[in-house]
Simulated assay, not measured.
Amino acid sequence: MSHPNATLTPRTRLRLARLIVEHGWTCTAAAKMFMVAAKTAAKWAARYRAEGVAGMADRSCRPRRSPTRTPEHLVRAIVRLRWRKRLGPVQIAGRLGLPASTVHAVLVRCRINRLSRIDRVTGEPLRRCAAANTTIPGR
Rank of each mutant, 00 (worst) to 15 (best):
D58A: 15
M35V: 12
A57D: 14
T26G: 15
T40A: 10
A31F: 03
W44C: 00
A50C: 09
V36H: 01
A50Y: 06
E51V: 08
A54N: 15
A31W: 00
M56R: 00
A42T: 05
G24D: 07
A17G: 08
T28Q: 15
A41C: 08
A46R: 04
A41I: 00
K32E: 08
E22C: 14
R64T: 11
T28L: 15
F34L: 04
R18L: 06
V36R: 02
A30P: 03
E51A: 09
A29H: 12
V21C: 09
D58R: 10
P63C: 15
R49S: 14
G55D: 04
W44H: 01
G24N: 11
A57W: 09
W25N: 06
S60L: 07
A45H: 01
R18K: 14
D58K: 11
K43N: 08
A30S: 05
E22K: 13
K43D: 06
R64C: 14
A54V: 14
T40G: 01
E51L: 08
E22T: 03
R59C: 09
K43M: 11
A50V: 06
R59Y: 09
R62N: 13
I20F: 04
A50H: 11
R47L: 10
V36A: 02
D58Q: 12
A31R: 01
R49L: 11
T40E: 08
A31T: 02
L16I: 12
R18H: 13
M56S: 05
T26M: 10
D58C: 15
M56G: 00
C27W: 00
P63L: 12
H23E: 15
P63E: 05
A57K: 10
A41T: 02
R49T: 05
R62Q: 13
M56T: 00
K43P: 01
F34D: 01
A38N: 01
L19C: 11
I20S: 02
K39E: 08
R62H: 12
S60W: 10
T26S: 15
C61R: 15
R62D: 12
D58T: 15
T26K: 05
A42S: 11
A29V: 11
F34W: 06
